[in-house]
Amino acid sequence: MITLQQVTLHAGTFSLREIDLHVAAGSHTVLMGRTGAGKTSLLEAVCGLRRISSGRIRIGDRDVTEESPAARGVGLVPQDGALFQHLTVREHLAFALVVRRWEQSRAEARVVELAGWLGLTGILDRRPAGLSGGEAQRVALGRALASHPKVLCLDEPLSALDDETRTEVCDVLAEIRRRTGITILHITHNRNEAERLGDRILLLRNGRIENDAPSA
């Protein structure tokens, strides 16, 4: 569950004021809106990557407003995947586990498990330069999910993909939700994608969040 209470934030020339948002536990909520409407800034605020001027942010039953991104238990998948060019797929999947000092055998088992259901087993030793767009996004998803975060934040993760790969990654996202029951906050411009994956669609318009976005 994600709750934003009266959140105000400033990003460059625009501001979002007194935003209220409630994302139910286990739901896939899609946030739509025009470019520059502040969707990514809001997502960054949830992840702890952007300071808010006022208001409170809660994840689950915890107030995380003052917590660091590391402590919030949020997985982030940006538009371009933002893979680490010097690491292999295996190292990406293990990254959060190494940082969080998981026991090696437990971390290895988690990497094998993730690679299995994300279809990455055969490419564990490849680096990002050798991955297709779909593979790269699956690696980014696996990296974000490895340490069992409570919330997954997706920032237009399918926008750079062709139609076929987009369908493939959509299936992966649906599978992730089915397997983990994770709460997903998903930003997209694509109405079809939103209707296919989201069980709630919100629109960020004129600095306000509205329910049930009309067709774009």
């Binding site: 992840c47 590391a70 933002a82």
Partner: peptide, 29 residues
Amino acid sequence: ISPRCEQVALTLGCTRSQAFWMVVLPSAR
């Protein structure tokens, strides 16, 4: 080097210093 990679590293559990040593500096090789 995109700051996005560093931000992702922060959400994965890194401190700013860990993100620098584990992500930024190797990318700047």
